[in-house]
């Protein structure tokens, strides 16, 4: 598929992250690094989060963003990157899951 992250788009997560950084906000960047099955967003997709929990972008169709945001706020405080994995909704493994039946890995890191 052709990637369509045209940077002139106003809601481009990486441009938003740079803008937030320039405003002095603490920022985390979450990136889909691997997908299996019918994951809604391809590898390379971004969700950016600030220390207040404001966010822009997406790593799924809205299924796991809440969880990623909570983790991202921890990453902003502690500084260590984390690898998160989300799969088919399954309460024994995860509280949140992807209803589409896919599985994704999301890398969350602090900016700076």
């Amino acid at each position: 598929m052709i990637s369509h992250n045209a940077p002139e788009q106003i809601l481009d997560p990486l441009l938003v992250a740079e803008g937030w950084m320039a405003e002095g906000r603490d920022v985390a960047i979450a990136t889909v690094v691997e997908t299996w099955g019918s994951a809604p967003r391809p590898a390379g997709s971004h969700l950016v989060i600030d220390e207040q929990g404001n966010f822009e972008g997406s790593v799924s169709g809205g299924c796991v963003e809440g969880s990623v945001i909570a983790e991202a706020m921890e990453v902003i405080k502690q500084g260590q990157p984390r690898m998160l994995e989300f799969g088919v909704a399954d309460e024994t493994a995860w509280q949140v899951g992807l209803s589409c039946g896919g599985r994704i890995k999301v890398y969350v890191e602090r900016l700076g």
Partner: peptide, 8 residues
């Protein structure tokens, strides 16, 4: 992780 950014 290689995140590729190609112009549209």
């Amino acid at each position: 992780f290689l995140n590729v950014h190609l112009p549209p």
